[in-house]
Design a protein around this nucleic acid. Sequence first.
RNA 1: GCCGGAGUGGCGGAAUGGUUUACGCGAACGACUCAAAAUCGUUUGGGAGCAAUCCCGUGUGGGUUCAAGUCCCACCUCCGGCACCA
Length: 959
Amino acid sequence: MRSYDHKKIEQKWQKDWTKKKLYKTADSVKGKENFQLLVEFPYPSGNLHVGHWYAFAEPDILARHLRMTGKNVMYPIGFDAFGLPAENAAIKNGLNPKKWTFGNIAYMKKQIASMGTSFDWSREVITADPAYYQWTQWLFLQFFKKGLAYKKETAVNWCPKDKTVLANEQVVNGKCERCGTEVEQRNMLQWNLKITDYADRLVDDLAPLDWPEQIKESQRNWIGRSEGAEIDFFLDFGDEKVNARTDASGKRAHIKIFTTRADTLFGATYLVLSPEHLWVKLALGHRTVLKNNEEVQKYVRVAGKKTELERQENKEKTGVKLEGVEAINPATGEKIPLFVADYVLAHYGTGAIMAVPAHDERDYEFATKFKLPIRDVVVEQTTPRVPDGVFRKIGIAIVENDKNEVLLQSITHEDRVEYGLPGGGIDEGETEEEGVIREVIEETGYTNFTNIRRIGTVESNFYNTVRKINRQALATCYALRLKNETKKELQLTELEKKVKIENFWVSKQKALELISGSQSNSGEDQPLFMRYLGDKTDPYTGAGILIHSAEFDGLNSEKARQKITEKFGTKKTTYKMRDWVVSRQRFWGVPIPIIHCPKCGDVAVPDKDLPVKLPDLKDYLPTGDGKSPLAKVKSFVKVKCPQCKGKAEREIDTFDTFVDSSWYFQRYSDPKNTKKFADAKKLQNWLPVDLYSGGAEHTTVHLLYSRFWHKAMFDLGLVKDAEPYTRRMNRSLIMGPDGQKMSKSRGNVIDPDEVVRNLGADTVRMYLAFIGPYNEVASYPWNPNGVVGVRRFLERVWRLHERLSAVQHPLVERAIHVCAKKLTEDLPQMKFNTAIAAMMLFLNEAEAKGITKGQYLVLLRLLAPFAPHITDELWHILGNKKSVHLEAWPKYDPKKVVSEEATIVVQINGKVRAQVQVASNSSEALVRAEAEKTVEKWLEGKSVRKVIFVPNRLINFVV
RNA sequence: GCCGGAGUGGCGGAAUGGUUUACGCGAACGACUCAAAAUCGUUUGGGAGCAAUCCCGUGUGGGUUCAAGUCCCACCUCCGGCACCA
């Protein structure tokens, strides 16, 4: 018997496929639909790990399957070859980054070949190849000419010790990765792309895409669109003449703020400007505007020096009041103070906010610290208003003791018992807090309290059964702790005496149950008690109904936002996302094709001079002034201006590598073109990408940038679709056997090359497919025994080829059709794990009952996408001349899939009591007759009230 | 804190509202063998019982339904992303 020698077989077929160019993809094939299956191209780090296998070998299953179903599938690959590690290798070990990178690529290509993937290497794209980056430069220049690229002072990470700019990846916890020095922010002129111009389209165009909701949601989050309003607050300098001064547009001095909560305008009790705000700068320059000019100046300076680390570590609010100026709340007409504080960010909105401490956590914290007024203007409404509700302010109390219990009241009247919290109306002239305490003393007798906290206010509308009126109550709740048991006599009103009031202590859990279950005549107890339990005390940041807001009282937040914006401001949309900084002060990247001319300014390198090639360097060390080593290459830097032919200098920054990877999938359609980035017709053949499989870590940045890039190209008429990827899926993570992330320090790294040597590529491919669903994001531990299990399966398949039977077993025949059906359904959804389970199930059946050659050949074709080597070998052993991978996908016969018998579950009241075998599609009457025999003892003496019958599944007797 | 996603045997996981735990791994026992490995076979959620059989079981607590892992409400835990974004 021939044994399964994976080494020999895998090498043999990999050679054969390459020789026969089996996976070379034609631009188009008559009668076949094109399908581009894209995987994120790897960075040439120099070694292939299990993650690469998972990323490349599993989608390969789908690629092979789709080819068998008659699609012209392009499954391309390339290398994202620019970037930091090559530069680090250069600096650390004096290696030539180019040699290092291309050496790694050669090695990794061999490793990738060992997977048996069907990549079309003739379409390989390498971003560090001038033939590719010529077009990266050209595309950037199209954007530049259209005004999408601009230069701007932007902060970069600067290491004061190494005297170099750091990439974000080189900053760990705010410190330099290499020397541990705290990183500073420095401003440098940098190239930006106007991605913010596309923010709305990037959000809106997500909706129709066939992407997991999760990915769409994180993109929306990242873009962070919020609809709000801009409102002007006029300034008052305490001098009518000064106040009346206007600017060029005829407007009085004012601060423009952005808010998403215009409904809380009446509660704005102060303004906050960011330290970098222009008005602050101007006022400081004037020196006489602010009475505490020096103090403010100092604060602004300190805030500017704060590093990211300090801002993250110290979140306690700081700020300084601007003396000598006040703002006027346009809604209330009230004069309110201004502050400068670094909790307001300069780059978001207008860099200034109206502070509403009653309804914003940060403002609340600040106002509490600086003792600023807090005014409620929105309350939660627990029940809708009724027409003739009589308004009443009430206070309720949550009284706690040391045993973690709270005081509850039972009220008995008209044969009903209700449970609730103590409390009552707040009288004229007393504060809410005083009113609550007075009520508690009267109703419970306890007199001494400590730790008095405000929980919040709600509006509750209800019918007061005692007074027989509709009530519109504004209920404020306080929590108080019992200081001691000192008690006074109860002082109940006549009404309160009529209903029997009893006080008792219960656990918080029990209290919630009683309050929630009670036929309480008002709705305020439960929501307030929930806030108390969840520690969700003030401020109340949710939506609600307006109070203390003049004519807007009674409106809900949504409506009020509209109305107040209309009257006092203008609608405005802002985004969290900022423009894309594409400059990097690095050597190993695509040179930015711009020439700085003292006369003409920034000039695009003419097309005929592209690519601007990266020069070969002898010395890769940074210059120490923040510039890339390119600055030292005079022959590179000194050029003539393409416009005026005068002396000029080349831009020495290079592109962010996300630029390189923003369009690589387009180049796959026409990778060798020297005249264009790609031929329009060839692009049309393959775009948009039908399925893009990648890692969850690229959900936001790469995916968003490349979508933007594509849209910008679309607007220039360079591509025909506004979106690049029809379908996107994120892959899971493979962990070490211990369930932890694989890492050298943990010693749990699985070397795929070694497993391939021992068990074969087919086994590794299939094991990774079997480990869990590929279409969902999760993390799966590598189980060494599990790999062996898959190897066992392949061995069993192998052995079967010498035991083929001449007689066909009907159940095996059905099983092969069932198996084909399951795979046909599961593969397009990338549910590889259940597909493999189906083949295992079939194998169990076939081994037990015998398999014919015809059935075996079907199995080989079903298995071929998963285990391409062993199946091609067996396919040839059985006498076929052409590769199994050129075969068509097996069709199943739906008629043969159905079983002749059905197992019917017999239930009594929904509980399984027996099962019966009947012919398929048996009638209810027949099944019922059969079923009743099996469950006689359950039906004895009882009458069947109802029978539920589900054909071929179950019958349920309800007695 | 906010936004996503997920909680099912000893483990990875499966399950159109219809027998929970397919398939695989592990474990136990048996066959083959001088023996072991490999291979093959049987068993394998928990509890009670000699047994037939019964009870309980998909993170927790409620609900809808003849029937809930699946639908609804509240909560807990874990993972991922964002994080002073007004």
